[in-house]
């Protein structure tokens, strides 16, 4: 009797997987995370001009209309430009900061770290207002590069984190070994230090790029009508009417996100993102 009960319990434990209760909670979370994200894809294939569930009929007419939508195309192009600029600024800054903080005896290192966290501790809307005021005072408001710079500033801690974790993991003995084998200091940096930092740089760069591509609130505050980026344009379009055309545009974002996740997995492995 006791034996059978034990066997039953063993079977029960195996049946729904390793962690039954935990598994059920997390499965619900997976649905919760994915449904509002992927629903945009479904809505974009709507045949009629009103988004309705279940869809009246399926069609790709909204995708067919995309190439003619110059406003959206221009905004998309600007978003890509802004994200590229932001990443290009953040990568060298991140590498320099990571090396400086970890490799050198810096006085007030704790204070500097706290200061460098400012982009995270200042509420995003306030960062937006602050940058709006500064760019206004400097008379550069309405120039596209200011948006790229702003996004580099507000997400900089992501880059610094990614790089510092790699600098930490890099054994200085490797660099000493390279130097003992006759490598120049510069060669050591280019062939030992930099490649070792690469996973951190790729992770950080990818995060910077995708976040910049998606950034909304600061962009909303500091863009003028001529330089609106795609998230801002999607926002104003949603406020006007919930047309399936916007869903088709938004689907591009879901696809870009999926691509980014794929790239991240191929380049460094998604698990890398969960390491501190």
């Amino acid at each position: 009797m006791a034996d059978r009960r034990r066997r039953l319990r063993a079977l029960l434990r195996r049946l729904p997987g390793e962690y039954p209760v935990l598994g059920a909670i997390v499965a619900a979370q997976v649905v919760f995370l994915l449904v509002p994200t992927l629903i945009v894809l479904v809505a974009s294939f709507q045949g009629g001009s009103v988004i309705r569930f279940p869809p009246d009929e399926l069609s790709v007419q909204w995708y067919a209309a995309l190439p003619g939508e110059e406003r959206f195309l221009a905004a998309f192009y600007r978003s890509v430009l802004v994200a590229t600029f932001c990443t290009a600024v953040a990568i060298p800054v991140g590498i320099a900061t990571g090396l400086g903080l970890i490799r050198y005896e810096i006085r007030f290192a704790g204070g500097i770290q706290l200061y460098l966290l400012l982009p995270f501790t200042v509420p995003l809307v306030v960062s937006g207002v602050v940058l709006l005021l500064i760019f206004r005072e400097l008379g550069v408001l309405g120039q596209l590069w200011t948006v790229g710079l702003a996004l580099a500033i507000i997400n900089l801690p992501f880059m610094i984190w990614s790089v510092t974790s790699r600098v930490n993991a890099l054994d200085p003995e490797l660099e000493h070994a390279a130097r003992n084998l006759g490598a120049e200091e510069l060669q050591t940096f280019l062939h030992v230090t930099l490649p070792a930092l690469m996973p951190g740089v790729i992770t950080g760069g990818l995060i910077m790029f995708v976040l910049a591509l998606n950034e909304f609130l600061v962009s909303l505050l500091i863009t003028t009508p001529n330089i609106v980026t795609l998230p801002v344009l999607i926002y104003t379009s949603i406020r006007a009417n919930v047309s399936p055309l916007v869903a088709a545009v938004a689907s591009v974002y879901v696809l870009a996100a999926a691509l980014a996740v794929l790239a991240a997995d191929r380049l460094v492995g998604l698990e890398e993102f969960l390491r501190s």
Partner: peptide, 14 residues
Amino acid sequence: FVPFFTGVIVRAYG
């Protein structure tokens, strides 16, 4: 990561 990388506006729309 797919929702994380999709951004606030698209998910608000969702």
